[in-house]
């Protein structure tokens, strides 16, 4: 039985992964709230986590639940949900593609967005992704694959229009 590490190490080891997942699932604006809620909740429950538990999967599960709460709270407010508000955010360096990929992920339907985030960004096997999203592992795998396919299409389209704008 491996002794439990100080929580500081959990934050350092998994913090960046949870932030990527929150950005993909929630968008840039709500991602930091999602991250904070996730780690506050994780810290509280940490002493009770079984020592041999998969910490990464545990954190993604918490992030998934917290994201649902945040989306619900947001949709209760009278704002359009399909259109994310445009606001400055300290995301990356313009031109490094970060914003473009994030915008593209934001255009995916929720299931695909979550499947891509949990499988490709958090590294969960589709069996675990299905556990979070409901449905079968095959359905989760399809959502992930469809999400990646849609992402490619969106990114190719936007780079084409970018080229068009730039070309006189």
């Amino acid at each position: 039985m491996e002794p439990k590490k100080p929580f500081e190490l959990v934050v350092r080891e998994h913090g960046p992964m949870v932030l990527r997942v929150c950005r993909a699932v929630l968008g840039a604006h709500d991602a930091e709230d999602g991250w904070s809620e996730t780690f506050l909740s994780a810290l509280k429950a940490y002493p009770e986590l079984p020592p041999n538990a998969n910490v990464q999967a545990w954190l993604v599960t918490i992030a998934h639940r917290k994201s649902i709460d945040i989306v619900r709270a947001r949709t209760r407010q009278p704002v359009p949900v399909d259109e994310l508000p445009v606001r400055p955010s300290g995301l990356g360096i313009p031109g490094d593609g970060h914003r473009e990929v994030l915008d593209a992920v934001g255009q995916l339907p929720p299931k695909q967005r979550q499947a891509v985030a949990y499988h490709y960004l958090a590294g969960l096997p589709y069996k675990d992704v299905a556990g979070l999203l409901g449905g079968t592992p095959d359905a989760a795998r399809r959502a992930g694959a469809d999400g990646v396919k849609a992402l490619r299409t969106i990114l190719v389209d936007s780079s084409m229009s970018y080229v068009k704008e730039e070309t006189p």
């Binding site: 506050l40 990356g92 970060h98 490619r152």
Partner: peptide, 25 residues
């Protein structure tokens, strides 16, 4: 490779989030 640009988030973000977590905790 497709998702790699998501890594290039603002470098100060983790520090800021960590401090916010410690204060809230």
């Amino acid at each position: 490779e497709l998702l790699a640009p998501l890594d290039s988030a603002e470098p100060g973000a983790m520090q800021r989030l960590h401090d916010r977590l410690a204060a809230a905790a």
